[in-house]
Design a protein around this nucleic acid. Structure first.
Length: 363
RNA sequence: CGGGAUGUAGCUCAACUUGGCAGAGCUAUGGACUGUAGAUCCAUCGGUUGCCGGUUCAAAUCCGGCCAUCCCGACCA
């Protein structure tokens, strides 16, 4: 595969790439550059994690990327996920791996690493301190939004370890590319700034889209300061901790249909519309065509072969929200089904699922 | 260790001074209106008033003790 093809694949994954020029240069230098994404093992797997992420990964692997999955157990601990109980977090990490296997992630091409395995390394902490020493308190404070919490929710000094440790991870994992969600932008930018100062490299940042939650992004473009934009993203993204506005890989077809039906979906409007968001980032990434069945009185069946075509039809009013919803439930169910089934049929997977589900309830 | 403040519905808070059926807003749920959702209107759910005891016919309210959180100070560095 030539460089242009590889770039095309990676560009398709990145909603933002810093910088495209550096990406090209990297691909020219390395046949198999290393990329990573980190996850706090917290609750049950939802669409962004169990469906979307594996889809992106498929293209990255195709492009020759060597991918490292960072199970950020210590980070979940710092962030008080699952009562800050490291045992529960470790169990959830194992469940996460199981989700990915079920989702068809080739485990021979992806490396799973636990953060806690690196924590007894003096080099790691030496690096953390060096990063902390070239980072101002103000800068670290701004980066705290990567924890997905707002200012009032954080009161522990431990939070300040989070961004510097995350930057340290990048160099620990020897990542040429940081391929995380757009909400992790601040840590990655910090790494680019700090890397060269400390004799490391400047990672290329390929940030993927954040799927929006079922309630939609209703706020009318608060173009104010950067922090409130971060907050807006935190409020808008599909989050495991807000079950009512998320779809999980364990949801039955009926549950999916009910949730989709209750989703925010203003007619003819694209901005902040979760249904259009899923069509673009899930359906057309996985399928070549989206078929929509309608009764004759509503215009009869219709089919779209690209997102652009669908969006055009929606804006023009040729596609009613309810028809889109009905079809969406079927397609999402199709995507979730293999993962859901895996946890139904394989007993060891089911046991993990049951445990993690318990953690949710206890919370 | 000491001083102060706070603790009431899932969330934000009223009611405490002067004891008398524990309330509002938001959220949630259900209807109305829309061929979805949202918005709007209507209705409903929601409570061991942090815990234990005391005074009283009657305690969220007054008194005592305890617990938790926050602020300030001291001790120790």
């Amino acid at each position: 595969m030539d460089i242009d093809e590889r770039i095309k694949l990676i560009t398709g994954v990145g909603e933002e790439i810093v910088t495209p020029e550096e990406l090209r240069q990297l691909l020219e230098e390395k046949k198999n550059p290393i990329a990573y994404d980190g996850f706090e093992p917290s609750g049950l797997a939802h669409l962004p994690f169990g469906v979307f992420r594996p889809l992106l990964l498929k293209d990255l692997i195709k492009a020759g990327i060597k991918f490292k999955i960072w199970l950020a157990d210590w980070f979940a601990w710092i962030n008080n996920k699952l009562d800050g109980d490291l045992d529960k977090i470790r169990t959830t990490a194992d469940y996460f791996i199981e989700v990915w296997k079920a989702a068809g992630v080739p485990t021979n091409k992806v490396e799973f690493l636990y953060a806690s395995d690196a924590m007894d390394s003096i080099e790691y902490w030496n690096r953390v301190v060096r990063i902390a020493k070239v980072t101002t308190v103000a800068r670290a404070t701004r980066a705290l939004t990567i924890m997905g919490r707002k200012e009032g929710e954080m009161s522990e000094v431990a939070a300040y370890f989070y961004p510097v440790m995350q930057v340290s991870d990048i160099f620990h994992l020897e990542a040429d590319i940081t391929q995380l969600g757009l909400d992790q932008r601040r840590a990655n930018m910090l790494a680019r700034e700090v890397g060269p100062k400390l004799g490391f490299w400047k990672p290329v940042v390929v940030s993927h889209h954040m799927l929006i939650n079922l309630e939609g992004a209703k706020e009318p473009e608060g173009l104010t300061d950067e922090v409130s934009r971060d907050y807006h993203l935190i409020d808008t993204k599909m989050s495991k901790s807000k079950p009512s506005s998320s779809i999980f890989i364990h949801d039955t077809f009926d549950e999916i249909r009910t949730k989709i039906n209750a989703a925010y979906c203003p007619p003819k409007e694209v901005q902040g519309n979760p249904l259009l968001d899923y069509a673009k980032h899930l359906i057309f990434r996985a399928f070549d065509e989206m078929k929509i069945e309608r009764k004759e009185k509503f215009g009869g069946d219709i089919s779209f072969t690209s997102y652009e075509e669908l969006e055009k039809g929606y804006v023009a009013g040729n596609l009613h929200p309810m028809d889109l919803k009905n079809s969406m439930a079927v397609y999402i169910d199709k995507m979730v089904e293999p993962v859901r089934n895996h946890f139904e049929s394989k007993s060891s997977a089911r046991a993990l699922y049951e445990q993690v589900k318990e953690f949710q309830v206890t919370r």
